[in-house]
Write a protein that binds this DNA or RNA. Structure first.
Length: 929
RNA sequence: AGGCGCGUAGCUCAGUUGGUUAGAGCGCACGACUGAUAAUCGUGAGGUCGGCAGUUCAAAUCUGCCCGUGCCUACCA
């Protein structure tokens, strides 16, 4: 080993290379479940509560997912974002206590149970309600368990042992109590509203229970004689409407026109043989539809008497076509934008009990009373003259003929069109006016309370505020009742005599107490006397059998979760859901809380977008582009999914797909390798003495300044939930500052300098700090990887990074001047690396250690580099400034003079003399031996 | 159909009150290293800023229209 070649053979053992047990590849799909098991063993959730005891609380109140199936990617996004926020608030030192919850009542679960019955050939109505409800309960409980496991697999930390759910007896009791508050206040009232109704099943149906198929309807052109009109000449002429539902004519209370439509008044001169239109009468219809109407009604000849715009009809009143047979009431003409000239006559007949738009226009806008005309079985009611007992689906031709006999029509026909049918019986359905319970937006100032509460709420992004405000401003009263089985009943008695709801707090309290003990099934199984007590005669009261809208359930979570649990508080600091919840949970929670407490249940509202596929299309089974979170976890790991969330702009819609996930894996590897390199370098550091800040080289002080700057940025961003930019900062730091710059420069020092050299120890001191900062910064995001890295660092299995807080950075590290200076240093460095690259492509040199750099600089550039170890900065064997008077920066690359040191691989003149080693390496090797 | 959003390189995103040749990272291509090695370093090529029109000395940025796309309503006589 005395000659050069021998010496160059192997100095690897004398070089201090990084060593770590933290593997380069994560193996996340296998490792993550182990980490979850470790957290369970540590009882991380409870430990964290203890660790943060007495600290300021941060309460992100969980919007309850619906317990009826496996998680989809939207759930994953939602819960991951919540977890990132909670963990980051915890890192800020707050007691971020997260209690997950579930929504259990409602239609979709009811369907599933009904479906099971159908398969067994049973009918839902034959099953006792308590039995049916019990099956719903079991079903919901099953899916709660499944989802709980799936959420935990995503890394979500929370009180999974003791979550909240709406079908818990205590929850049901408080939901009922909240309804009681509206009852006692007087804002709960019984009104009526048209709902989809199946005469076959004698029940109301939800939109989703309908299927559309062809149905042939009898159509009529009915005429309404004008009795009042601003255009006096038109009085006694006829407004003609077209409808596919003659049975709604007895329920007619108004007509609608559109201000912008052109109408004509024509005199009928001649009709065909079969026509029922009458010659010499003047009718008013849409101009554009005139020919169509004439051909359908057999009008052969006519003359146009007048033309008019819709708005000229303002204030007109007409007579019902059956006015002579007991339907003698005024029929006002109203403007409605939704009236079109696509078909019909340009006029729409309005039966406020038989269509949502009719109801909206006539009742809500003009206060016209809603008549009840149809019985549960679809027959017209007894009190209706002429038509009593006729069936709304079977007798339309008869009805049409009778109206025709009363000279009320100009045409009868039929039309086959797409029409809603019951999902269960496949029979056609109708809109029917039914009794419903409402919470008034006005009577107790609910709308105003809600609106002013919104003005005090922070929105992320801010556009959510306007969106919610405009919804609250425009919404009608809250229809609370559902004619359903699986939910919390509306616990109200109605006095039969007066039709008024019983308002007695002692009755309400009795109901609540019973619900708390037995659940709200008691409402259906107990006799009314049990609730009414001794002061009321059960025979005089009707028990309401409707259940509450499930949005009321989840809208009350602030009452039965935030207010009830000692470890939470209300209002919550944050509600966080998808943007669809403006209409949903944000909305119902706001109304419920504003109505009962005159304030919002939240201080802040964050909305995220929806998850789309890689092309920006929505995911659907038919497109086959559904991406399941379970699959991503299985293939790549939950940390990759979590990284995807923060790398996206989640305020907008997010895209996901194979390329996007591939990119996340790339980002992940970069961060992971940065941690790994730090862990490797820091191996054995605890045996060395750290170096004080003052003694550090400028490069280390620059790293310190960057850490200070990052810390400031990150804590700022954490407080406005902006994790996207945190991710960018962190990635760029790992990538650009550490890996490509700082680590690269310090490698020589770390590997080859004397073990306890001051500058080497200084570098390690700073790298130690880098690690501690970095692992804490990524912990809320890459919760598994951070935990694993921290364990590799401390080797203390009783600890977790998630119990810690963000690293405290000394304020003396702040140095924006230094950051600015080194930005300029790096731009000179960049010119050098470009020059080296050029030299390499000209085959002048190979690796950068073969290079010697000659710099011609401007004067200020020279000043910039003063005192900096240039060969180290450029990672070359030699570098010097040959001129400081240059007008333009020039970099010359030469082959470095000397031989390659067998240990550090630098090319130096001294090496030959030293038998293969440079002076520095010789010294280190001799000392070591 | 209406309300609210979104549309900048293959991907994810920056682009302050309109002001030089539109930026970053990844990916890609090429190269180096073989002591972070299924890693690391360097260099480079990628964009009619969805389209059209307008305001302006000047537009990714302001206005209008259109196209695409998402959420929420309404889909009716």
């Amino acid at each position: 080993m005395s000659d050069n070649r021998g010496a160059s053979k192997n100095y690897k053992d004398t070089v201090f290379l990084p060593t770590t047990t933290f593997p380069m590849r994560g193996g996340l799909p296998q490792k993550e479940p182990e980490i979850i098991a470790r957290w369970k063993q540590l009882d991380l959730y409870k430990r964290l509560r203890q660790a943060r005891k007495g600290r300021e609380k941060f309460i992100l109140h969980d919007g309850p997912p619906y317990a009826n199936g496996n998680l989809h990617i939207g759930h994953a996004l939602n819960k991951i974002l919540k977890d990132v926020i909670n963990r980051s608030q915890s890192m800020m030192g707050k007691d971020a206590n997260y209690v997950p919850g579930w929504d259990c009542h409602g239609l979709p679960i009811e369907w599933k149970i009904e479906e099971q019955y159908r398969k067994k050939g049973k009918d839902k109505d034959e099953v006792p309600i308590e039995e049916f409800r019990e099956e719903c309960r079991v079903f919901a409980a099953h899916w709660m368990n499944v989802q709980s496991e799936e959420f935990q697999r995503l890394g979500v930390l929370g009180d999974w042992q003791n979550p909240y759910y709406t079908m818990k007896f205590e929850s049901e009791a408080i939901i009922a109590a909240e309804i009681g508050k509206f009852l006692m206040q007087g804002s709960l009232y019984r009104g009526s509203k048209p709902v989809m109704w199946s005469p076959v099943e004698k029940t109301a149906l939800a939109e989703a229970e309908l299927e559309y198929s062809d149905h042939t309807s009898t159509t009529i052109f009915a005429k309404f004689k004008l009795v009042e009109c601003p255009l006096k000449a038109l009085i006694d002429n006829f407004i003609v409407i077209w409808t596919t539902t003659p049975w709604t004519i007895p329920g007619n209370r108004a007509l609608a026109y559109n201000n912008e439509i052109d109408y004509v008044a024509i005199i009928i001169n001649q009709v065909s043989e079969n026509s029922i239109a009458q010659e010499n009468q003047i009718i008013i219809v849409s101009e554009i539809l005139l020919e169509d109407i004439c051909s359908q009604c057999g009008i052969i000849k006519y003359d146009v008497k007048a033309k008019l715009k819709g708005y000229e009809l303002k204030g007109s009143i007409a007579k019902h076509p059956m006015a002579d047979a007991g339907y003698d009431y005024p029929v006002p003409l109203l403007n409605a934008d939704y009236v079109t000239t696509e078909q019909g006559t340009g006029f729409v007949h309005i039966a406020p009990g038989h269509g949502p738009e009719d109801y909206q226009l006539a009742h809500l806008k003009y206060g016209i009373e809603v008549p009840h005309t149809v019985n549960e079985d679809g027959t017209l009611m007894e009190h209706l003259p002429v038509f009593s007992g006729f069936h709304v689906l079977r007798d339309n031709l008869k009805i049409a003929e009778i109206i025709s006999e009363h000279k009320g029509l100009i045409g009868i026909g039929n039309l086959t069109h797409s029409y809603p049918h019951s999902w269960r019986s496949h029979a056609p359905v109708i809109y029917r006016n039914t009794a419903q319970w409402f919470i008034s937006m006005e009577s107790d100032g609910l709308r105003n309370y809600a609106l002013s509460a919104l003005k005090e709420t922070s929105f992320y992004p801010s556009s959510g505020q306007r969106r919610l405000i405009s919804m609250i401003e425009n919404r009608p009263d809250w229809c609370l009742s559902r004619q359903r089985a699986w939910g919390v009943p509306i616990p109200v008695f109605v006095e039969k005599k007066s039709g008024k709801p019983l308002q007695d707090q002692s009755v309400v309290d009795r109901i609540i107490a019973i619900f708390k003990e037995e659940g709200c099934d008691a409402w259906f199984t107990s006799p009314p006397s049990r609730f009414l007590g001794e002061n009321y005669d059960p025979d005089s009261y009707e028990k309401v059998n409707d259940i509450a809208d499930v949005w009321f359930d989840s809208g009350s979570t602030h009452a039965f979760v935030l207010e009830q649990r000692e470890d939470l508080h209300s209002p919550a600091d944050l509600y966080l859901e998808g943007s669809d919840q403006h209409r949903g949970w944000f909305h119902s929670s706001l109304l419920e809380s504003s109505g009962t407490r005159a304030k919002a249940p939240y201080k802040g509202v964050l909305t995220h977008g929806f998850v789309l596929d890689e092309q920006g299309r929505k995911m659907s089974k038919s497109l086959g582009n559904v991406i399941q979170p379970q699959k991503i976890i299985q293939q790549s790991g939950a940390d990759i999914l979590r990284l995807w969330v923060v790398s996206s702009d989640y305020y907008d819609d997010l895209r996901i797909g194979t390329e996007i996930l591939k990119r996340q894996s790339d980002h992940y590897r970069r961060i992971r390798n940065t941690l790994r390199y730090l862990l490797g370098a820091l191996d054995g550091f605890d045996a060395l003495e750290p170096v004080s800040f003052d003694e550090m080289p400028e490069l280390e002080k620059w790293v310190a300044a960057r850490l200070f700057e990052l810390d400031k940025k990150i804590t700022e961003k954490v407080n406005i939930y902006d994790f996207h930019s945190i991710f960018t900062e962190l990635h760029d730091f790992c990538n650009g500052d550490l890996s490509a710059f700082y680590f690269d420069i310090r490698k020589d020092m770390l590997y080859c300098d004397k073990l306890n050299n001051v500058s080497r120890r200084a570098a390690l001191t700073m790298m130690d700090m880098c690690f501690k900062c970095l692992v804490a910064w990524i912990a809320p995001i890459l919760c598994f990887t951070a935990d694993e890295a921290w364990l590799a660092y401390t080797k203390n299995t009783d600890d977790s990074i998630h119990l810690r807080e963000y690293q405290n950075i000394p304020s003396e590290w702040e140095n924006s001047d230094l950051i600015r200076k080194w930005m300029n240093v790096r731009s000179i460095r960049s010119e050098v690396t470009t020059a080296i690259e050029n030299a390499r492509s000209e085959s002048k040199i190979g690796g950068s250690l073969q290079a010697s750099v000659n710099l011609s600089l401007k004067e200020e550039e020279k000043k910039l580099l003063l005192g900096i170890d240039l060969p180290a900065l450029f990672i070359t064997s030699e570098a010097k400034i040959v001129s400081d008077r240059a007008l333009k920066t020039r970099v010359e690359i030469h082959l470095a003079a000397g031989e390659k040191c067998a240990r550090c691989w630098k090319v130096l003149p001294e090496v030959k003399v030293n038998h293969g080693l440079c002076n520095r390496c010789e010294e280190v090797v001799l000392e070591k031996v």
